[in-house]
């Protein structure tokens, strides 16, 4: 059932779906008004990453680097040394893989204040296929020292994350998505670095989700509830640092954890939860997501089912594993 403590933070209307990348662009355009240090860098994808919304309002603070992600990432480091707050956007595949060494050496090693906000993450990119579906980005960014990793679940949380990281001194990676998702939170919700939020409550199992998968996990939890199985559903936008307490306490209570991510199950949210629980409170963890294979072209909802993290798959994983408790 819905966590009564946070009921007033949830969106009660059935409004239209919004992509987190769109919420990002809007947030940037708003924040650009109040913070003149913000500069935005993009690599010929501003219409897709939605940084175009900032570029239209503040053309003098928007820098297009053409199709050259390595140069853009290092240039962002240069901007940061001049006291600017660079937001760097491209697709997640390019931010994490093409520009990996630049993220590590130009940005993270000196700890520079660069906000890497990458869109089109996960297989839910859909039709573009494997070359454009980032399934390793969280693993890569999480393993680079000093980089914080955030994966907001909806438009509200995206806006809150972007507002929050303005005050964060140092590098971070924000994982945004192409596809539209329901608005889960209302504007009273506040994102905190290192904190997750329990959206639903129950004793049978714990589901941990982030980003695109949170709304799918909510569907799954509701289906389970209809069958009399109540679960804790934790939204973990702050993947690094992760909220240790909320996961450990829930795992202690339920004894079964299912993680759901639009990412390879190696190195992402599921791994982060396993690393944590192994040390603090060993529990059975089922990692749903991309099972160490590449993505493929297709409609995102078809892919989510084919790769086994649609709401039915999540509900089945919980039910099948209850017997091990």
């Amino acid at each position: 059932m819905i966590n009564s403590d946070i009921k007033n933070l949830l969106n009660s209307s059935n409004g239209k779906k919004i992509a987190t990348r769109a919420a990002y662009g809007s947030a940037l355009a708003e924040l650009g008004e109040v913070n003149e240090d913000i500069v935005v860098l993009d690599c010929d994808l501003s219409k897709s990453t939605k940084t175009s919304l900032f570029a239209e309002k503040f053309p003098e603070r928007f820098f297009n680097f053409g199709v050259a992600e390595s140069n853009m990432m290092s240039a962002a480091a240069g901007f940061a040394t001049m006291g600017k707050i660079p937001f760097v956007s491209t697709f997640s595949v390019f931010a994490s893989k093409r520009a990996c060494d630049q993220v590590s050496i130009s940005v993270a090693y000196p700890g520079l204040n660069v906000k890497i906000c990458a869109t089109h993450s996960g297989i839910t990119v859909g039709e573009d296929g494997a070359t454009h579906q980032a399934i390793e980005d969280v693993a890569i960014m999480r393993s680079i020292p000093g980089i914080k990793v955030f994966s907001p679940a909806d438009a509200t949380e995206t806006k809150k994350v972007i507002e929050k990281i303005i005050d964060l001194k140092g590098p971070c990676y924000v994982r945004l998505c192409r596809g539209s998702v329901p608005v889960i939170f209302n504007d009273d919700y506040e994102f905190e670095i290192g904190k997750g939020i329990k959206i639903m409550e129950g004793d049978s199992a714990t589901i941990v989700a982030a980003g695109f998968t949170t709304h799918i996990a909510i569907e799954a939890a509701k289906k389970l509830e209809d069958e009399g199985i109540e679960v804790d559903l934790i939204n973990m936008a702050s993947i690094k640092p992760i909220d240790e307490n909320i996961v450990v306490e829930s795992a202690k209570k339920t004894g079964l954890v299912v993680t759901v991510e639009d990412h390879n199950v190696i190195g992402g949210l599921g791994s982060a939860v396993c690393e944590l629980l192994c040390a603090k409170n060993p529990a059975r963890v089922i990692r749903l997501g991309v099972q160490d294979k590449f993505g493929t072209s297709g409609d995102p909802s078809v892919l989510v089912s084919a790769y086994g993290f649609d709401s039915d798959s999540i509900a089945s994983a919980v039910k099948e594993n209850l017997r091990y408790k």
Binding site: S70, S74, A75, A77, M82, P110
Partner: peptide
């Protein structure tokens, strides 16, 4: 390492990156 050595304006070492950093500095200026 810009954080360890006074007078070093940016950390470098992985070849090719420093000139891009300089581009960012020049744009910022």
């Amino acid at each position: 390492d810009m954080n360890k050595t006074p007078g070093v304006d940016i950390s470098t070492g992985s070849l090719g990156q420093g000139l891009s950093c300089a581009v960012g500095m020049a744009l910022g200026a």
